Simulated scan of single mutants.
Amino acid sequence: MAASTANVDEITAQLEDCLSKCGFEVSPLKVGWYNSLLPASFHLAYPDDTLAVVVLSTPSMFEQAFLPFMEERGYQGLSDPIDQCVKHQVSSAVSQCFPGQEVDVRYDYELLPSRKPKFLAQTAAHVSGAAFYYQKSDVIDQPWDEKKMFGVCVHPKFGGWFAIRALLVFGGVPVGSEMAQPVPPDCVPSREGRIQLLEGFNFHWQDWSYRNIVHPVQTYSQKQRDYFATPPAQRFALLKSWGFLPKETINLNQP
């Protein structure tokens, strides 16, 4: 029996209740919407009517989730601390909201054995209606000829000041036809704006100006900017300078 829209709303509301206070947003989608835009090698191996939910982090995640996570738990020096925090928050929410239910959780940093990503984050965000995925093909009379241009998502409220973190696939939850596919907000409708966005993202991403292509309601705090502006290999040293010690160091000091 197909799940009703009410069931989808209930699942989404449960996740929001757990995750929104930590600076995350969730948006539901059907697997078929996602698969229809991609070649077979990137398809999710689920029926088209299967429910999935994409999880985004907003600018407040850093202060509401990441810094408290560092304060309470520290970090392991084996993987990215932000990834560790996101995995903790999402897996805790899934365990709390859906105990005993099988949920296929895929994180943006995870790769398959083939080295392909476990899901294409920007495509998932686009088909869920959470953010518009602007690509080279969205520009009329492209000025770049054959030059490769990477696409980028823009959030209607946060512009580029957000990140796509995870995809949750509810394998046992088929969705009825009454769940209509949303249209993502076209925040950058003009050709000039789209050229500015894609050139900013591809050629000047370090200055972060592309993130302000729309007026955001919130941006990253200065501390968060300092963190993400620091090369990944040096972020552990930055965390130590903030007083956060890796778990291994803490454990060695314990009796």
Rank of each mutant, 00 (worst) to 15 (best):
19 L>T: 07
19 L>Q: 08
19 L>G: 07
19 L>W: 03
19 L>Y: 05
19 L>C: 00
20 S>Q: 10
20 S>E: 11
20 S>V: 02
20 S>R: 13
21 K>I: 13
21 K>E: 14
21 K>N: 13
22 C>W: 08
22 C>T: 11
22 C>D: 15
23 G>N: 06
23 G>L: 05
24 F>C: 02
24 F>G: 10
24 F>W: 05
24 F>Y: 15
25 E>M: 14
25 E>R: 12
25 E>K: 05
26 V>L: 03
26 V>W: 06
26 V>H: 02
27 S>P: 01
27 S>V: 11
27 S>A: 15
27 S>R: 07
27 S>H: 13
28 P>G: 01
28 P>Q: 00
28 P>Y: 03
28 P>S: 06
28 P>I: 08
29 L>F: 05
30 K>M: 12
31 V>E: 08
32 G>T: 08
32 G>V: 09
33 W>M: 09
33 W>V: 12
33 W>I: 14
34 Y>M: 01
34 Y>D: 01
34 Y>R: 03
34 Y>C: 10
35 N>Y: 11
35 N>L: 11
35 N>F: 09
36 S>A: 14
36 S>L: 01
36 S>T: 04
37 L>D: 06
38 L>T: 04
38 L>K: 07
39 P>M: 10
39 P>A: 13
40 A>F: 13
40 A>H: 14
41 S>F: 15
41 S>D: 15
41 S>L: 15
42 F>P: 08
42 F>D: 13
42 F>I: 06
43 H>Y: 04
43 H>T: 07
43 H>V: 12
43 H>S: 07
44 L>I: 15
44 L>R: 06
44 L>E: 12
45 A>N: 14
45 A>P: 00
45 A>R: 14
45 A>K: 13
45 A>C: 09
46 Y>Q: 13
46 Y>W: 08
46 Y>S: 12
46 Y>N: 00
47 P>R: 06
47 P>L: 12
48 D>L: 04
48 D>E: 15
48 D>W: 00
48 D>G: 14
49 D>Q: 11
49 D>T: 05
50 T>V: 11
51 L>C: 09
51 L>A: 02
51 L>Q: 00
52 A>N: 09
53 V>G: 05
53 V>P: 06
53 V>A: 04
54 V>S: 02
54 V>F: 02
55 V>I: 13
55 V>Y: 03
56 L>Q: 15
56 L>I: 13
56 L>W: 00
56 L>S: 15
57 S>T: 14
58 T>D: 05
58 T>E: 07
58 T>I: 04
59 P>E: 02
59 P>R: 10
59 P>L: 12
60 S>F: 01
60 S>K: 09
61 M>Q: 12
61 M>G: 07
62 F>T: 02
62 F>M: 02
62 F>E: 09
62 F>R: 10
62 F>V: 03
63 E>I: 01
63 E>R: 12
64 Q>R: 15
64 Q>Y: 09
65 A>I: 07
66 F>M: 04
67 L>T: 12
67 L>D: 05
67 L>A: 09
67 L>N: 08
67 L>C: 04
68 P>I: 11
69 F>C: 03
69 F>G: 00
69 F>M: 07
69 F>K: 00
69 F>N: 01
